[in-house]
Amino acid sequence: MHKWILLGLLLLLPPNLGALDLSHIPSTRSNPEDFSPAPQNIDPLSLIKQAPPFVVPDRTEKLLTYPCTGCHTQGIIKANPKIRPLQMMHQEINLVHGKGRFWCTTCHSTYERDNLTSLKGQPIGFNQAYLLCGQCHQHRLREFIYGAHGKRIGSWEENRTLLNCTECHNPHVPQIKPRKPRSAPAVRAGLRPMKPPIQEHPPFWPSNLDDYQRH
């Protein structure tokens, strides 16, 4: 009799069979050989060659005063590499990037005015600003070209289009300022949001959780 009762009860247990079938779960991990360890201090250009190809939207179109040679033609307004308060033009630029280590010509080429410049003096186009930033922010650059930093736009499928660093970060003031968020969630129609408790009820029983939170 007892045996039968036990057996009957066991038969009543409903298994969640869906949870047992694990065969359909594909592995998201590759073979260790498939990817190389993070390269250290590697030349940005060779790093980019290893990564899946990408394009960035044209930046120069969006620059109001581009081409710079519109004014900075050799002989008319000469580049002045001296660090000084700006008098006539570009007064809106408040250079906080680099904590005082930089001056315009650190990044903007003194001689090829429509280009940026690497620390070594090689010209870098405005559309390749990420190469310039990547000189110092190497880890960011690596994450950028592999898609972990910055933002991909358009399709997830092919033709990787990445937003250039300068689309989000103002290169002169790269830190993004706090701002107000979009509206807070609502509760469903017909119900009122919870009011904050009028008075914190003293706990009937001191709990460890409370102690932890107090500290």
């Binding site: 594909p26 998201t28 972990a148 910055g150 997830w156």
Partner: peptide
């Protein structure tokens, strides 16, 4: 740009790079 979306079955996808690195 906090969000990375893609195909988990594509070893070259960004999401895979994030998961692996």
């Amino acid at each position: 740009g906090a969000r990375v979306f893609g195909n988990l079955l594509d070893p070259k996808s960004e999401i895979r790079w994030v998961l692996e690195n």
